[in-house]
Amino acid sequence: MPVKCSSSCGKNAILKRPKTGDALCKDCFFWAFETEVHNTIVSGHLFKKGDTVAVAASGGKDSTVLAYVLKVLNERHDYGLNLVLLSIDEGITGYRDDSLETVKQNRDDYQMPLKILSYEELFGWTMDAIVGQVGRKNNCTFCGVFRRQALDRGATLLGVNCVATGHNADDLAETVLMNILRGDIARLQRCTSIITASESEGSIPRVKPLKYTYEKEIVMYAYFKRLVYFSTECVFAPNAYRGHARAFLKDLEKIRPSVIMDIIHSGESLQVKDDVKLPVRTQCTRCGSVSSQELCKACVLLEGLNRGLPKLGIGKTSLANRAREQQDAQKTRIVNCDF
């Protein structure tokens, strides 16, 4: 016997919500999904009327659904937002070039302007070239660091008020676990906040409207709405350690589906002892972006690439400094020989 929709609308249910276990029909699910994102946006005070918001779009399911839902809600609830798509082209052949096609499709479907920034024009290096230098190990560090910077620069270029990213509840829960496993107290404390980095002026805040949305529901929404998205793993080796945390979370979710929200609750209510020293956030002396060190990670990595010492930003700082000094010394020696 078919199950009835739990909202008593009379229709037969077609899915069971992973978050609450309720059975819903298609229309009620669409409505519930959208209303929940709306609730997050309203209660978290994510946007102000008249804001220009850049949707960080990769062509994947999260950002595709995010762009679609924001467009729908913007019209339905009259947020008065000006939405634009912002994509970063890392220069990964066989992965990003294909996914960018999806983003272009989104641009046409949703009638939003699209800006694509590439690593090549920003940093002078494509990911393909970087992997050629550093090999398959550690290349995710470069990609992640550069993307953060690229998004910031892109946002500044477009003059937007904030950047909306497609992080979902699963991503957040996973990050909480990761930060515990790595012992990263500072990030553990701030990783669950819905708006990041707004305190220091000059940096553009990032918001996560899908923070409380299960990954499974995002897939369901995209599936029933027939939204096209790009779902291929990056061609470069996936990160093993985060993979552990992800697998652990998936196993936990099978035991108790509410575990994702439970972990986020834990993350939100964690408190750090007063006497624990946390890194002070300042600005990079070279490029001015937020950093806890004198030089931000992006500048160090880029310097390493340009010097031909790609490992510069990966190991310990002391080792990096030694390598830097050695190379400088060598250069002076060569210069001395010339004369």
Partner: peptide, 8 residues
């Protein structure tokens, strides 16, 4: 995968 604060 790793777009943390500074991505590192």
């Amino acid at each position: 995968r790793n777009d943390e604060e500074d991505g590192s």
